[in-house]
Design a protein around this nucleic acid. Structure first.
Length: 535
RNA sequence: GUGGUUGUAGCUCAAUCGGUUAGAGCGCCGGACUGUGGCUCCGGAGGUUGCGGGUUCGAUCCCCGUCAGCCACCCCA
C-alpha cells in the first residue's frame, strides 16, 4: 500500500512558525492601529449561506466563490469571499447594534482564482469599516488608518489614491456615457496606469460591445500569432467563431464583415512575438478591429460616442496639487450636480485629513482610479507601494447601498481592506522586519545535564514563566550538545543550563547563544540576567 | 476561465545528439567531541527524474494527458 503524498490544495499553503512570527507582527500592528481609531473586533463564520453571498459581487467575481454543500444538497453554503458582505449581513441581522458601528476583522477569505505572486486562494484580509454615518470623517479616518499602518510597518514611499464614484458618474454624464455603461467606464479608466491613454481610448470604444465577440476575435488573432493557422484559413477560422457554426462569438453576418479588415490587419503583423506576450499582443490587435464592430453594434447596443472620448480623457489627465485638481474639476463640471457632490465630499475629506495629520505627500486625488467593484457609491481608496510590483495593497471605499440588500432600509458605510499577503511579500524582499523579531517567540531554552537536574529545571522554567519570560523546557535529558544544538537551530537567543554544580550551589548558567558567552548567576539574578540579553 | 513556461535528493541546480551505474553544493544523520551550538575534518543516508499513458532496441530528454509552481491575460488584496 503506497503512502499518501502530503500536499495542500492549489493556491493554499502552510505557514510554518518562522513565517508566522512575521505574520503575527504585521497583524498585531494592524489590529493595534485599528483599535487606536476606535474600531472593535468582530468574528463571523468562514462559511456563509450561499444566498448571503450570491448576487453581491457581480458575475465576474461570482465564479470565484467557493461553493459548498452538505447532505444531499440540502444546505447550500459558500466560503466567504470577502469581509464586507458578512459585515452587512451582521448589521442587518442585529439592528440594535449602536451606530455608528465601527468594526475590524482580520480573517481568511477564499477565492477560487489562479494563484500568482502575492495572490492565493486562501488569504487574510484586514478590514476596518464604519457603518451608520455618512460623515466624511469616517472616510478620512479610513485613509488615516491606512497611512499610520503603512508608516508603522516601515513603508516610506507609498500613495493612497483617492477618488469618488459620484465624481466619476458626473464625468461620465459630462462625456455622454450611457448609464448602463458606467461600469465599463470604471473598468476602462482604472487601467490607465497599465495601458496608457491610448489603451484606455480603445477600451472606452469597446465598451458596450458584447464580450464574447471581442473574446472570439482575440482568440483568432492569438492563434494566428501562435502560428496555429495560416492566413489562407482566416476566413474559415472567423466563420467557425460564429454562433451559427457552433462558436460563441458573433453572428455569421458580422463574421463575414470582419474577414477583410482582419486579413488586412494580420497581413501587416509580424508573428515573431515572445511566447509570454502573445496574449497581451493579441488583445491589443483585436481592439484595432473596433471600427467594423462598432459599426455593426451601433444599432442594437449603447456605445460611447467617439466624439466624447477625447474630452473624457482630457478630464482624466488633470494633474497637480490635490486642491488644484479639485478646483479645476469644479470649474469644468459645474453643470453636473452629482460631480459637484463628489468634489465636495473630497474637499471635506482632505480638510479632515489635514486635521488628522496625514501628510498630503501620501494621499492624492487620482481621477483615473476607479476600482472594479460595482457597489461603491462615494469616496474610493487604493494604495500603491512604489516599486513593489504587486499591484495595490489596500482597497476600499464607501458602499452606502450594500446593507440595504439585507434589510428594508439601508445604512451608509465606508471602509477599507488591507492585503497582508502582498505587504509581507514586499517586506520580506526589502528586509523590513525588525531585526529583533527573529524566527521564534521563544526567548529561553532551559537545558539540563542529567536525570537528577530534571525537576529543578522544571521548577526553574516555571519561575522564568511567572516572570513573563517565554520559556521552552527541554523535555529529555539528552546530551547537552543536542540541547544547545536544538536551541541554535531554532535561533533561541538564550539557554539556561542546570547541572549538579548549579543545583548544589543554587545557581544557574546563562548562555547567550548569539554572543557565545555565558555566566553563572544566583537564582535571584537569573531573571534580570536573561532580560538583559533578550532585550 | 485563458495563454505561456518550469517540474531531477529536504533546498538550489547539473547530466553531450535519445544511450550504460542520474551528479554537485548546501542541508540532514553519524563520528572526531559523555558540561555546551556556530567553525573545521572524516564518514553516511537520501531518487518510481511530479503523476499517467505513448513513440523507441533504449526516455530525465521527444509526443499526449493530468497535477503543481511561476509569468502573463481576465479579475483582484
Amino acid at each position: 500500500m503506497s503512502k499518501l503524498k502530503p500536499r495542500v490544495p492549489a493556491g493554499m499553503r502552510d505557514i510554518l512558525p518562522a513565517q508566522m512570527v512575521k505574520r503575527q507582527y504585521v497583524i498585531d500592528t494592524i489590529a493595534a492601529t485599528f483599535e487606536e481609531f476606535g474600531f472593535e473586533p468582530l468574528q463571523t463564520p468562514a462559511i456563509e449561506l450561499d444566498e448571503t453571498l450570491r448576487g453581491k459581487y457581480g458575475p465576474e467575481a461570482e465564479r470565484l466563490v467557493y461553493r459548498a454543500t452538505y447532505g444531499a444538497g440540502e444546505e447550500q453554503l459558500a466560503l466567504r469571499y470577502d469581509l464586507s458582505v458578512p459585515l452587512c449581513r451582521v448589521v442587518a441581522q442585529y439592528p440594535d447594534l449602536p451606530k455608528p458601528f465601527k468594526r475590524y476583522q482580520i480573517a481568511p477569505v477564499w477565492r477560487a482564482d489562479r494563484p500568482q505572486r502575492g495572490r492565493f486562494r486562501e488569504f487574510y484580509q484586514c478590514d476596518c469599516d464604519s457603518v451608520g454615518s455618512s460623515s466624511m470623517i469616517c472616510d478620512a479616518e479610513t485613509v488615516a488608518v491606512i497611512y499610520h499602518i503603512l508608516a508603522r510597518l516601515g513603508f516610506a514611499s507609498f500613495t493612497i489614491q483617492i477618488n469618488n464614484r459620484k465624481l466619476l458618474n458626473g464625468i461620465g454624464r459630462f462625456a455622454g456615457v450611457p448609464g448602463p455603461l458606467l461600469k465599463e467606464l470604471y473598468q476602462a479608466i482604472d487601467k490607465l496606469p497599465k495601458i496608457g491613454v491610448d489603451g484606455v481610448r480603445q477600451e472606452l470604444l469597446a465598451a458596450g460591445i458584447p464580450d464574447p465577440a471581442i473574446e472570439a476575435l482575440r482568440r483568432v488573432v492569438r492563434l494566428y500569432l501562435q502560428k496555429k493557422f495560416e492566413l489562407g484559413d482566416l476566413e474559415s477560422r472567423l466563420l467557425a467563431e460564429s454562433t451559427e457554426q457552433g462558436g460563441s462569438g458573433f453572428g455569421l453576418d458580422l463574421a463575414r464583415q470582419l474577414i477583410g479588415p482582419a486579413r488586412a490587419l494580420l497581413e501587416s503583423q509580424s508573428r515573431e512575438v515572445a511566447a509570454d506576450r502573445v496574449q497581451e499582443h493579441a488583445g491589443k490587435l483585436a481592439l484595432s478591429l473596433l471600427p467594423p464592430l462598432r459599426q455593426y453594434f451601433r444599432a442594437s447596443r449603447d456605445l460611447i460616442p467617439e466624439s466624447v472620448v477625447d474630452g473624457l480623457l482630457g478630464l482624466l489627465a488633470i494633474a497637480g496639487d490635490n486642491r488644484a485638481v479639485l478646483a479645476a474639476l469644479r470649474a469644468k463640471l459645474g453643470d453636473y450636480p452629482e460631480a459637484l457632490e463628489g468634489i465636495g465630499e473630497l474637499e471635506a475629506m482632505f480638510g479632515f485629513l489635514d486635521d488628522l495629520g496625514v501628510p498630503s505627500t501620501h494621499c492624492r486625488v487620482d481621477v483615473s482610479m476607479a476600482r472594479g467593484l460595482e457597489y461603491y457609491t462615494g469616496p474610493i481608496f487604493e494604495t500603491v507601494v512604489h516599486e513593489a510590483g504587486v499591484g495595490s495593497v489596500t482597497g476600499g471605499g464607501r458602499f452606502d447601498d450594500l446593507v440595504g440588500m439585507f434589510m428594508d432600509r439601508s445604512l451608509p458605510a465606508t471602509g477599507t481592506t488591507i492585503g497582508i499577503e502582498r505587504l509581507i511579500v514586499v517586506m520580506e524582499e526589502r528586509n523590513m522586519f525588525p531585526p529583533g523579531l527573529g524566527n521564534t517567540p521563544v526567548q529561553v531554552l532551559v537545558a539540563y545535564r542529567g536525570e537528577s537536574e530534571r525537576r529543578p529545571a522544571t521548577r526553574l522554567a516555571g519561575e522564568l514563566r511567572r516572570a513573563g519570560v517565554r520559556t521552552l523546557l527541554y523535555p529529555d535529558p539528552d546530551p547537552l550538545r543536542e540541547q544547545i544544538g536544538f536551541a541554535n537551530r531554532k535561533a533561541i537567543p538564550v539557554a539556561v543550563v542546570l547541572g549538579p554544580g548549579e543545583v548544589a550551589a543554587g545557581t544557574a548558567t546563562v548562555r547567550d547563544l548569539r554572543a557565545g558567552q555565558q555566566h553563572t548567576v544566583t537564582s535571584g539574578d537569573l531573571v534580570a540576567t536573561v532580560r538583559r540579553i533578550v532585550e
